[in-house]
Design a protein around this nucleic acid. Structure first.
Length: 251
DNA sequence: CGAACGACCTGCAGGC
DNA sequence: TGCCTGCAGGTCGTTC
């Protein structure tokens, strides 16, 4: 998409999680770059950045200019050469907001470190866990601390690290911190390499169903045999989120 | 301040 | 067949 000119925009839904903000002034501007912070996509124009979050069910697809909009198609970004980027999001947990050049949007201000950066390391993790009673899984999923670790990968990283998701953060040892930071990086890297995790409704931008799949060891496998020791996996809830672990491998 | 919890919204599976 | 309930990949705001 980079180097294409934005020709027009069509907003069909006034608000997703927040009101959709697509300023008129970017029409006619060139898309300079697409980057990412946490799970926010940043579409850079000279006047600022369009921040797009896909929430749980959002999808971006490339469609033809004359392709009729379907249910839950909320926004079209019409670019040069009849290339249309169409946002579909049934649950509307996503958002599209504007960040003027030189400013930082409120939503980005309190985000923690990037998990694949050097800032996310054993010492950082260890320090963050001090004096906290909160379950380690909740800390991993807290974007003020580290971004990008959602429910699936938090479960998977803790399995790989041999740490029970319900363990109090302050009970994490230095050795645990070394293992866990490495596991978070490894799980995310593998998942990216595999093209994401295919669940019920994942689709690629071309509309094809996802066909990559990372092997999930615990997520959605409650009651099934642990891939490592064959013991049945246990399920619990943390902050209303499905939490699965092996009671024999994770302590 | 941290922690718990409700809220947002639709689709789907499963039970009756 | 149809209605109801519970659950789902995220994260913010309110309340305690």
């Amino acid at each position: 998409m980079v180097h294409r000119v934005l020709k027009s925009t069509i907003v069909r839904t006034p608000a997703l999680r927040w009101p959709i903000e697509v300023p008129e002034l970017i029409v006619g501007q060139t898309l300079l770059e697409i980057s990412r912070r946490g799970k926010y996509l940043r579409w850079h124009f000279a006047a600022g950045e369009l921040l797009i979050h896909l929430g749980m069910s959002g999808k971006l697809r490339l469609v033809d200019e004359h392709s009729p909009p379907a249910k839950h198609d909320h926004l079209d970004l019409v670019f040069s050469d009849n290339v249309v980027v169409r946002l579909n999001d049934p649950r509307r947990f996503g958002c599209v907001v504007w960040q003027p050049h030189g400013s930082q949007h409120q939503l980005l201000k309190s985000l923690g470190v990037e998990p694949l950066s050097q800032n996310f390391n054993p010492s950082f993790l260890y320090e963050c866990t001090r004096d906290r009673k909160q379950a380690i899984k909740l800390l991993l999923m807290n974007a003020r601390f580290v971004v990008g670790v959602g429910n699936i990968y938090a479960n998977e990283a803790l399995f790989q690290a041999g740490i029970r998701p319900t363990r109090q953060s302050r009970r994490i040892t230095r050795k645990n911190a070394v293992q866990l930071s490495a596991s978070v990086k490894a799980i995310l890297t593998d998942a990216i390499q595999a093209g994401g995790t295919t669940l019920k409704d994942f689709v690629h931008p071309d509309g094809n169903l996802g066909y990559f799949k990372i092997e999930l060891n615990v997520y959605d496998r409650a009651g099934l045999a642990c891939n490592r020791c064959s013991h049945p996996l246990k399920k619990t809830k943390l902050a209303q989120r499905q939490t699965v672990y092996c009671p024999r491998c994770q302590h």
